[in-house]
Every structure is written in C-alpha cells, then in structure tokens.
C-alpha cells in the first residue's frame, strides 16, 4: 500500500462499511464497481472529468448503482468521486478490500474468469487455494472475457493460470 492517500481513503471506506455493519457486501459491491471502471474507460474518464458538473457525475453513479447496490456503496463511491479521486477509485477499493480481508485474517485472491463463479465454486476454490498455499483467502471474481475459459487466480504476487488463453498462448509459442 504505497500511496498514503489511497490507503487513507481505503481505511475510511472500510471504516464506514464496518460502521454500517455489512462490510463484506459493501466490499464486494465496491470491488465489482472498481472492476467495471477498469474495463470501461469511458466510464472512468467521465467520472474523473472535473469539467463535468459534480451533479452530473453523481447522477451517473446513481444510475449505475442506485438499484443494484446498497446505499452505503453508492454513497461511498459518490464520496470518492466528489472528492475528485475517481481515477484512484480502483486502487482505493483494492486497498479497502485488502484491508477488510486482513481484518478477518484473510488474503484476497483475485480470480479472473470469463464467467462468474458460483458460490460453491468460490468456496471450493478458496479451499483449494488454502490447501495449496496454506493461506486463508477471500475470492474476488473479476469477469474478464479475454480469459476465454478457465480461471486465473492472483494472490499477491503469485499467479495460478488455468485459463484457455494461456493454453492458446502456449500453443502459439510452440509454433515459433
């Protein structure tokens, strides 16, 4: 957690979510919104555009999260965007998720898959990772169509790549 500002915002978000009593749901909703920001450049640039009126940007947030996320999540995202830190929101959310997992003595395992994992798959994957690495993890799924199939798991600096994309890349390398 290199940037003190990001760490500060992450700590604040975690504190608010914990205060509201449902931090796990808030973390999950914030994580998914952060992934949406990463994958949608137009959305990121719109929220970070200080030339747009704040009300317009907040309206965009409300349109995206109002009916799909909790009020706390919407309020936290609006707070960060209103503070002019929309560009740092994905990093803040990552740090907040890490902070939440750490509060529960767990590590975040970012899982990228072309399709969402079922709850059962998430639990089994967490157990499998625990079996392999000895670390208790919380699985955060990122929908990434470029994976094509299978799963890519990132735990800190460790990567376990079981994607179809990797196999296709291996096949491409074998042709060279």
């Amino acid at each position: 957690m290199a940037d003190p500002r990001v760490a500060g915002y992450a700590e604040a978000l975690f504190a608010v979510a914990a205060a509201e009593g449902d931090s796990s749901v808030v973390e999950d909703e914030l994580f998914r919104f952060a992934q949406a920001l990463r994958s949608d450049d137009d959305l990121g640039s719109t929220l970070a555009d200080t030339g747009l009126p704040l009300a317009r940007r907040l309206q965009v947030i409300d349109d995206l999260l109002g009916s799909r996320a909790s009020a706390v999540t919407t309020a936290l995202v609006s707070m960060v965007v209103g503070a002019g830190r929309a560009a740092e929101l994905p990093a803040i959310v990552d740090a907040m998720v890490e902070r939440g997992a750490a509060s529960r003595n767990k590590t975040v395992a970012t899982v990228r898959s072309a399709v969402d994992l079922t709850a059962d798959q998430s639990e089994r994957l967490a157990a499998a990772i625990n079996t392999r690495t000895g670390r208790d993890v919380e699985v955060r799924v990122v929908i990434d169509p470029s994976v094509l199939g299978g799963v890519v798991t990132e735990i800190g600096d460790d990567i376990i790549d079981g994607s179809v994309r990797r196999r296709l890349n291996q096949l491409r390398e074998s042709f060279r």
């Binding site: 898959s113 072309a114 399709v115 994992l117 079922t118 798959q121 089994r124 994957l125 157990a127 499998a128 990772i129 079996t131 392999r132 199939g149 299978g150 799963v151 798991t153 376990i160 079981g162 179809v164």
Partner: peptide, 13 residues
C-alpha cells in the same frame, strides 16, 4: 465453462 472452472479447482487443490 463450469467444467473448466471445476477442473481448475481440482487442479489447484
């Protein structure tokens, strides 16, 4: 996709 994910979980485990 489900089978691939299951296979991956089994492989990791």
């Amino acid at each position: 996709q489900g089978r691939l994910i299951d296979a991956y979980i089994d492989e990791v485990a």
